[in-house]
């Protein structure tokens, strides 16, 4: 059997490229937001907030593209799975972008106090969020079902990282509640908690993307499946 590139093929290639561009844009936003928080560089935080419009635009563009492929080409099999997964992934990407904005906004609010005294407390969770996101994008690009499946089993680890980070933040603001800096510590601590939340959500959304990668590759839905299947060859 010869292979030929169909018009549908070309459209799917465009869809894939636009998705990868959005993945990169969101990845930069996550990275820059975290860096802004760690270093207190307000320019980087402001750039993340400004850049969100572009990410939203990509979401709409990819959404429309996927919809038109479905309507005009009626894809099946792997093609169908890819387009359907694209419609889902784009939602996760846009939300991850929103979380990056939320972290960047917190950096802007906390300007003057940065680098954040609770920075060390959230560092492991922050690193996990960045790594999981990168891994999810790599797995998607390579369509690697093995890595995707492994990522989907990271749920428990993500929860533990968040709990640990929250504990450290609480420790920080419960320390000597009577001294003069209590007010400020509560203020910072509250932001610390919200940052933990945002980072946790990035981890979860990255896992969602991995689920979709697994769906594209294997045709199986592993959402809400307690023991996910072994990827077949």
């Amino acid at each position: 059997m010869n292979k030929k590139e169909t018009q549908l093929q070309q459209q799917i290639a465009v869809l894939r490229t636009r998705l990868l561009i959005m993945c990169a844009a969101v990845g930069i936003a996550v990275n820059e937001a975290c860096e802004a928080l760690a270093t207190g560089n307000m320019g980087r935080a402001a750039a993340v907030v400004d850049g969100d419009a572009e990410i939203n635009g990509l979401e709409n563009e990819i959404d429309a593209l996927a919809l038109s492929i479905l309507a005009l080409n009626q894809p099946v099999a792997h093609d169908l799975r890819f387009v359907v997964a694209a419609l889902r992934i784009v939602i996760d990407l846009e939300r991850i972008g929103d979380e990056a904005v939320s972290i960047a906004e917190r950096a802007l609010i906390l300007r003057g106090i940065l680098p954040l005294p609770v920075g060390e407390a959230v560092a492991p969770l922050r690193d996990a969020a960045r790594n999981l996101y990168l891994k999810a994008v790599d797995a998607f690009r390579e369509e690697d079902a093995g890595i995707a499946l492994q990522m989907c089993r990271n749920d428990e680890e993500t929860s533990q990282l968040e709990v640990a980070a929250l504990h450290r933040v609480m420790d920080y603001f419960c320390r000597e509640l009577t001294d003069d800096s209590t007010g400020e510590r509560l203020y910072i601590g509250m932001h610390g908690i919200l940052i933990c939340r945002a980072l946790n959500r990035i981890c979860r959304r990255a896992a969602n993307i991995a689920e979709q990668t697994y769906f594209i590759a294997q045709g199986l839905n592993i959402k809400h499946v307690p023991t996910a299947p072994q990827p077949s060859a």
């Binding site: 059997m1 010869n2 792997h78 169908l80 199986l220």
Partner: peptide
Amino acid sequence: MFTRPSQKQTEEYITGRFG
């Protein structure tokens, strides 16, 4: 068959990547 064919030849045929 149309979401997850098990054979490569089926996939190629139904997705129009054939011949």
